[in-house]
Design a binder for these strands. Structure first.
Lengths: 235, 235
DNA sequence: TCTGTTCTAGTCATTATGACTTTTACTCTA
DNA sequence: TAGAGTAAAAGTCATAATGACTAGAACAGA
């Protein structure tokens, strides 16, 4: 919330408002096909500008919290979610992002695990939508989500970020489904399997997932560093 | 410059100050070995806090310019340089970055070509230093430079950023010297050459660089997209 | 018991990579 | 002016990584 109100002529003299927003990704089964798909929560704007349009969760930066803490807090407040991964995405500061006052938004992106995503409360003003079917969002939020998707797709290929979408144990097929959902393409099960077995950070357990009408798959565990929740350049 | 002055109790009520800084990299010959090395310009602080310490070029964000424009402008003002590459690095917003008022810094990083770097004016308050020999800088600027170096080293390996350090034509050995300076290690000339010849964005000219006491090397030209000066997530 | 399914373990050809050798074309020095 | 020194340029070879594919193993359900 801005602590000043201004008319147009005063606007150019004021420092831009500083806000924090977050793009939150989770995997949920597609209602039709049933396969895991990328979803994200949006909040309905209750005032101008863009009243009644959907927007990314966000809010002002409190004076006594770091940027990362602010992102984590208003993620918690708006969606009730605890992220397994949280990293700064970009600072958006174009002149015409908001029709009222100039706003510089420092945007974070987060991943949540399926058990968290299941707890997420959905209300009149909070809705989950498929990442590829957003509709028109407030401000430049469509562009921001697109950039977050681009980063997610890149990062999933060269880092161990995929496990932030999964529980403590998982089958190799579940890992493959994460990759397929994020990258939007089918992967060869046998070759994908070979690659995972070659990485050091993933070790087999003695358990198997029962219930499928086929050979029960072995469960694995991720032993690497817990997908830096910091995301800070100190790391 | 903050438009308000505050005592400690008021401080927590004010919005954080917003500033733009830039880490500018150029290659200059090492004064001893003569091989190209990473250098960057610093400015001397002329007031408190950290008066007389060296710091990254930067300043406040003007109300009528984009973040990127602000970075380009104060890069131009402090060092007289025109960058060949400019991209947002990170937004630093920790609580204790400045002992006076809280400052959120949106930091950019830039590369300049050797002809530009040669024009750079060096004054009482502007000095170029080797990237690996900075001394103690003001604020958290040592950490920021370290992160910028990390990004540069990563990006040089998977993108065509190296050509932002070079003129319109160059020998393959000059490209290799850029990589060696940035990565800080020797590369095999023959294998490096084979890789460059395999990339589509680099084509041979009919000219050769004369003057060396050895077989004259062919000059090449970079034909790829001009190393996105935008760096914006729109791309 | 048979069938459909996916898990799991392999094969094979192609490509990419690192270490290394040889020839070429220039300058400098004796 | 012949020979030495130097880096450019092209090529060889063994190894590693990758994509396409095959086949047996182990379950559920009919």
């Amino acid at each position: 919330m801005p602590i000043y109100s201004a008319n147009v002529s005063e606007r150019a003299q004021q420092p831009p408002e500083l806000a924090i927003s977050t793009v939150i990704f989770a995997l949920r089964p597609d209602p039709e096909a049933g396969v895991p798909t990328l979803w994200l929560p949006l909040v309905r704007r209750t005032r101008q500008p863009f009243r009644d349009l959907w927007a990314l969760p966000g809010g002002p930066l409190s004076p006594d919290e770091s940027l990362q803490d602010a992102a984590a807090r208003n993620l918690q407040e708006t969606t009730g979610l605890q992220p397994s991964y949280l990293e700064q995405l970009y600072a958006f500061g174009g002149l015409d992002r908001s029709p009222v006052q100039r706003v510089v938004s420092i945007v974070y992106w987060a991943l949540v695990k399926p058990d968290e995503a299941a707890l997420a409360r959905e209300t009149e003003n909070v809705r989950w939508v498929r990442a590829d079917d957003l509709g028109q969002l407030a401000f430049d939020h469509n562009r921001i989500v697109e950039y977050a998707l681009w980063r997610l797709r890149n990062k999933v290929e060269y880092s161990s970020i995929a496990y932030a979408f999964l529980g403590s144990t998982f089958t190799l097929a579940q890992v493959r489904e994460v990759y397929e959902a994020v990258l939007g393409k089918q992967l060869d099960p046998a070759n994908f399997r070979r690659q995972l077995r070659a990485t050091p950070d993933i070790e087999p357990t003695d358990e198997y997932l029962q219930g499928g009408r086929h050979r029960p798959p072995r469960l694995y565990r991720y032993t690497g560093s817990a997908a830096q929740l910091s995301g800070s350049p100190s790391a």
